[in-house]
Design a binder for these strands. Structure first.
Lengths: 150, 150
DNA sequence: ACAAAATAAGTGTATATACTCATAAATCAA
DNA sequence: TTGATTTATGAGTATATACACTTATTTTGT
């Protein structure tokens, strides 16, 4: 543990809403990533597989919208998952421009293996940050996401 | 505007705290990035320069702690700023392991040019998302950042 | 003084993010 | 029908993020 740790022990609320959110996201992402590392998934990959399981075979653009992710970002993020056989992309017979994304059996197995680790991480977060604040944060970020900023 | 946009118009609060936070951060980052694009800075770069202006010449590790950023991430993020002459790294005479990061006059000028755009973005966010919710979110993410999750 | 431990930083590698541009296919309008 | 437009996607480029490993330097314990 570095001495620099003490400098951030008591941060003042950030004047910049975006910078504060970005810092907190890095913090939380590292926490979840560490909890999932033993099954070989990041929290981003876990979220992709989980949502994909729920939405079945789906076009890339539609899935990017569900994930609130740039279309090209989704494409890049899928490459390691496809390479490792966790997700598969096939042509859409109904529209030859479109390509359908689907979870493979391997992807389902990996997701099932990760789920208890994710649940434990969620519980640990609530225990450390507080159930009320965790709930409030979840609600606020969902509302922010639904806010049109363009 | 794609038809997919309608799929995300009314999101349910995310079960995964991390995924929700990550989506909202992408959303907000794109908003700020677009507002700052005309001066050639991303919100991440703006935050770096702004904090650097406040903390003067400072060692890389100490600055990474202030930014709540991984040390190696900071190093990579500094490369374009150094290349463009906005920040400069010099050896620390007191400790030859350490290197001191400082804002250049060019960096100060760029920061000054960006500041009104950032202020306008902050104001727009508050107008659209609501001052009370913006304030609450800022406080919550600061508290989350201060929470030890290890 | 010197060997061991701690510290500061860089490099290699891999994934994450998104902009611009290009391509192909479907839709629409005259 | 056919030419213009919209839509779905991929490729190129650049920055963002962080882990594991390495190197150089300082500090510390004896």
């Amino acid at each position: 543990m570095s001495i620099y740790t003490y400098f951030v022990a008591m941060p003042s609320p950030d004047r910049c809403s975006c910078h504060g959110l970005r810092k907190a996201t890095r913090h939380l992402t590292q926490f979840y990533d560490q909890r999932l590392a033993s099954v070989g998934l990041s929290i981003g990959q876990y979220a992709l597989l989980g949502r994909l399981a729920a939405h079945g075979p789906i076009a890339l653009g539609a899935f990017a919208a569900i994930m609130a992710m740039d279309r090209t970002t989704l494409g890049r993020n899928l490459q390691p998952l496809e390479r490792d056989g966790l997700a598969a992309i096939s042509p859409d017979p109904a529209d030859r421009r479109s390509r359908l994304l689907a979870l493979t059996p391997e992807g389902q197995a990996r997701l099932a293996a990760a789920r208890p680790l994710w649940t434990a991480a969620q519980d640990d977060l609530e225990a450390r940050f507080g159930a009320d604040r965790t709930q409030a944060l979840r609600l606020l970020v969902a509302e922010l996401l639904a806010t049109d900023l363009a």
